[in-house]
Design a protein around this nucleic acid. Sequence first.
RNA 1: GCGGAUAUGGCGAAAUUGGCAGACGCACUAGACUUAGGAUCUAGCGGGCAACCAUGGGGGUUCAAGUCCCUCUAUCCGCACCA
Length: 991
Amino acid sequence: MTEYRPQEIEKKWQAFWKQNQTFKTEFPSQKPKYYVLDMFPYPSGAGLHVGHPLGYIATDIVARYKRLKGYNVLHPMGYDSFGLPAEQYAVQTGQHPAVTTENNINRYREQMDNIGFSYDWSREVRTSDPTYYKWTQWIFIQLFNHWYNRISDKAEPIETLIAIFEKDGNKKYSAIGGGAACDADIEIFTADQWYKYSDKEKYAITLKYRLAYQSNSIVNWCPQLGTVLANEEVKDGVSERGGYPVIRKEMPQWSLRITAYADRLINDLDLVDWPDPIKEQQRNWIGKSKGCMLEFKIQNSDAKIEVFTTRVDTIYGVTYLTLAPEHELVDQITTPDQKENIAKYILYAKNKSERDRQADVKTVTGAFTGAYAINPLNGALIPIWIGEYVLAGYGTGAVMAVPSSDTRDYAFAKHFNLPIIAVQEGSHTDITKEDFDPKAGTMINSDFLNGMAVPQALEAMTRKVEELGVGYGKYNYKIRDAIFSRQRYWGEPIPVFYKDGMPYVLKESELPLELPKIDAYKPTETGEPPLARAEGWKYETSTMPGWAGSSWYFIRYMDNTNDKEFASKEAIDYWQEVDLYLGGSEHATGHLLYSRFWQKFLYDLGKVKTKEYAKKLINQGMISGVSQKILTVSGPIFDNDGSKKSIHETNTIYTGHNNEQVITIGDMTASVYYSYDYFSKIEDYISQNPDKNYRLIPVNINIVSNNDFNTGILDINEFLKDENYGKNKVLIVKNGYWKNSKFHLFKDEPISDPIPFLTKSEVEKMSKSKFNVVNPDDVINQYGADTLRLFEMFLGPLEMSKPWNTASISGVSRFLRNVWRLFYDDKGNWVVTEGNPDEKSLRILHKTIKKIEEDIERFSFNTSVSTFMVCVNELNDLKCHNKQVLSDLLILMTSYAPHITEELWSKLGNTKSIAYATFPTFNPDYLVENSYEYPISINGKLRHKMSFSLDTLPADVEKEVLASQEIVKWTEGKAPKKVIVVPGRIVNIVL
RNA sequence: GCGGAUAUGGCGAAAUUGGCAGACGCACUAGACUUAGGAUCUAGCGGGCAACCAUGGGGGUUCAAGUCCCUCUAUCCGCACCA
């Protein structure tokens, strides 16, 4: 083969690698290790689009590069194969999700194979495989069997907790559970009392302390999906998947005590090289805030209200308390005359869905309980209100309101005419409008705090309330324990059975607890999860959430076939942790947080070696699609000048080749479509009249050719064939021409071909419904996998989001042909020469080695492609076909374009794969030039260029410059103040 | 509202520690070969006749600023009544 035919050589080498197991990972190995990991995909029915492989290509480049550098590389791939879409498909069709999943996986695999990745497929994992989820269940059991000891600050076996109870009771450790449920529910007992409990009672107590525990939680219940959703699966009050409404409901649920790890999850972010936005999002999500718990006594009552505040310094400005409508004391403290009012308000708040609540946070609502609390510092009586702006789930569900320092309290106070006391300078007036910073300034009207700055006052007041015994400093967290139950079929069964109403976990030997066969996949008629349909199923009926399997898969890759352990100690000792992890930033507060939590738990158990599992994380940017849209109007129709006409008064259109026949549009039920250069004129009108009957609808990008960056040209014939857009279509183009699919109707004059029908281009997320999905297979069929790989890298920086713009792909394709041209001339003759390369070629080569090495080490793949282009162009200009130079070039390029390099490598007479080659060593000697041309600038402005020999030191250069007659002329004979010489770069003379 | 990021030709973008801004590619223009090809090759390509002016706007530090500091503006993303 003497011509570059990518499709042929790519298939050939992909088969070769597979057959020879070229990329099989060594274990055990004496080599240093490198672990490079992609976030594994959920295998959806839509297959891969060009955005998915972006990260895979980048990691593949790193993996291949590290192998050439002598590392033993772990570069695995697998599937996050439990998930909702396969289950929903099963509900509709009855097809087992395992079948759908298997099909989708095969499709994914085929697509990935086409790109030529160097994964070691023998290490593949699938979360839905019983040999895998056996160990997911095993981890759950470990979580169940452990509790969090706040004193040793780690997870410990439940037996150590029981030993403590036997010795001291639970007083000292009452808050160890960490979760809200635990703090509230557990009675204090002594060691003596503990001995008096029955075994069953003892067991019930331990259940509240375990890291996996059951509780009645208020959950996000989605009736349409028939399941509970995690907070991050709910967006704006509707489910992320499907967009169904979500209501809040109390249900018994399994939870994992991630809150126990909150501090470590924040602190250990310092140990990893992750993008700042991700770290920041995680910190935000955990939401640690320093504040103070305060106790308010209630007038004429024994009840006390606890509030959490971050601004205890403003306590003299408290003019009322607000409780969440769900607060447990509301009923008790409400005075008889307010009962009716409060009941009405609670009912109102309860019926308001989460979505409505979030939709209008501006509206102020609330009700007065009739009760008064006492300010613990000055004894002032302050009214107690309830209001929906106070969240039941955060802090204590009660706030001390300081309307002069907090805008929400201010709005509430204004609305209900409650008093406002300024306690900070500048807070006398409307604090929502004034340029007022509540975190700065000095305290006023606040007794002993007067004159103090805010931070100082905070400290002083915290000490004071602790002295008085009415409060204490405390950190509060936004993060909630992670709900772990899903009322679904297609997930890991929770390895739990019930006896006497209490949960017990299975023994390790009983794992895996496999998913049972059931006849239908929807919830039962009585609303129980699908697993309740299984005959003889005596286990927990809910399954684990989607994130369970993905929280530890990176460990399983180390030893994926082990059926004795989740991974062997030897494997974990060797592979340690992921060196480079690549995936999308959308997992910031989901997978990336939960997996860190599990890693820390396994670390506490001594099962893994590192506190964090991924040293370096890169978020690849999303590749968005370019949709092509046309306008359709069902209401008014617009004439050439933009004036509005009704579709019926648009009179008549002429038909036939001779414009003989006349019909009205009104008779034809045709769909009317506007070309962009026509509707751009009326866009303003449309945007100002949003209720009009117009729609921008996407057309398949395959029937649109690129025009410019804003528009495309529609293939009218293809469009007319497509019945999805109506049988009869009237297309309105620039000059008021009309065209109909059936009759080829023209108005006024026949359409003079070609008048392009323009579409409007819009950059959007790739999705089926927008017809803007680009399939990598199509690109490969046209250009080859190497071109696809190079092009995806060339598009721009890896981390940046960018639209898929096929326009510049031809340049990359041309480049690969130029590479081929270094070996074969245009007549197909082999032109590679033997012998020693000349100095110029070596210079080019070593410049390239240096650059490529630097680029890959700092993950700047786009610049590498440019570097290759420059290198090949320069070698071409030199007519360099030297074998040694070209060999090294192929090794440099093989990470990026493995197929073409493998082919040419074999043509050079190598019998072993290029994957076993060694990355060339950079030799700086080749880069040193005989002379260097220094630009000379005077006062920063470029004036002149001078050449100096290579062994001239900067100081000598300086002397030479000053001695130069020409420079003396430039400086007009003045003695310079300073001469700055940057070696190899520039000389600057400061006058 | 809070937090984070980004801003460089017609377009995607380079510029690693402050050191000749615009590499490389696309598009475009002219020419060559051929002559209906979306092929290939050569040259040009930020603005200005020029000196010079140009990295979202304004200010500062420096011999030297896309890069550092202050400030304003625009766009994107995340969180959002978190007390």
